[in-house]
Design a protein around this nucleic acid. Structure first.
Lengths: 207, 207
DNA sequence: CAGGTCTGTGAACGTTGTTCACAAACGCAT
DNA sequence: ATGCGTTTGTGAACAACGTTCACAGACCTG
């Protein structure tokens, strides 16, 4: 029992260390030897807890997703009317979409490297189930305002559209914060998100 | 002179080989030793033409951008009315935006690995000027229909909005073709792009 | 053709992630 | 408490990578 305990503590220490390093220097800054030195274990000890560094990174990414989930959960969702929405309800739903997108931007801007690791990390083998489950959970937040804007859509179509709205927002944030194109400041980027997501929401409602 | 000639031929051979390898196995499949063997030169010869592999990749990426430019140039752009646009002109502009986005999707789907290399490749140092110039050139295609939809915007605001529209479309395509979320088929993705970019265009016009 | 310059060569270097024979620590029965 | 089998952590060793560099050979020039 004492042994399992140590194993758990080693795992936690590795996750903490890896998270800190990624937050500080990005994914490419994570080196097996440095990490071992940081947590005070042997190089090989890492591989007694995780099959490889990819699995470790995936676990760190899960932490990031959970952190984001706690942030996004604070965005108030609109009540869902039964019939076709009134103009005011429509505007409220659009505003919710914008708030969700801005929350995403804010999180990405405040946790740039950790957030980048979520997407920068290319996967070699199939992703574990818990990773996909967490993703679907996050999409549900988008589905609520969509139910107001497009009550005509079926469950499946709405889920697909939610994913697309996330993808579009992610593109805005991702390329906005990327050095590859010119980096935009968060306020400018927020303005663009308000314009684009706002237009998107209004366009969806009338379509 | 004969010497410069050989140098040019070596450069072209390296670019061809690297392009082929990237198209076949992605960025991570590009290895200095394999490339040298493929083009029949010594390992060190690569570094007489390019300072490092990053520069080589950047040159391959420029080729990809040029290839895409030839594709996107075939999309017909709407004539630009002087005053406020008629509803028909507005619809035509929206249709152009959708066509541009679909062309982007189609190119990405047909040249997946080459296209991925454009964004997967994280840059360490500042990007060369010619790279940025090419990017701006591509944004111009989006600016034309925007001029119809939003004649009220200034040059700078319109350029920014064009960039944002590209970013949103890129997000749709990028995550749509990514294995990290579930991969969508090109037809499904095209449908989503039509819905989202269409709504976006209409929402922009009325806003 | 001789001399100097430039260029391609591939062995060698430093850094990676990952493995594995061995030693140390642990748990349990005596 | 003590001994013994098992499990666990160790870090040297391995393979693969990008990059460098002393040297040998090819090239141009007088």
């Amino acid at each position: 029992m004492r042994n399992d305990d140590r194993r758990e503590r080693l795992k936690a220490a590795l996750l903490d260390g890896a998270e800190r390093t990624i937050a500080e220097s990005g994914l490419s800054g994570l080196k097996a030897r440095d990490l071992a030195k940081e947590v005070g274990c042997a190089l090989g000890a890492i591989y007694t807890v995780f099959p490889d560094l990819d699995a470790l990174i995936l676990s760190v990414n899960l932490r990031t997703l959970a952190l984001f989930d706690r942030v996004i959960a604070t965005v108030p969702l609109p009540p869902e009317p039964d019939g076709p929405p009134t103009p005011a309800q429509r505007d409220a739903a659009v505003a919710t979409l914008v708030r969700l997108a801005v929350a995403y931007l804010h999180f990405a801007a405040q946790n740039t490297t950790r957030w980048r690791a979520l997407f920068q990390h290319r996967v070699t083998q199939a992703l574990p189930d818990w990773y996909l489950v967490e993703q679907v959970r996050l999409f549900r937040y988008i589905e609520a305002p969509l139910r107001v804007l497009r009550p005509d859509l079926g469950e499946r179509e709405r889920a697909l559209l939610a994913r697309s709205l996330f993808s579009a927002t992610h593109g805005l944030v991702s390329l906005g914060l990327d050095e590859k194109l010119m980096v935009l400041s968060e306020p400018v980027l927020r303005g663009q998100i308000e314009v684009v997501v706002g237009a998107l929401g209004r366009g969806l409602a009338e379509g």
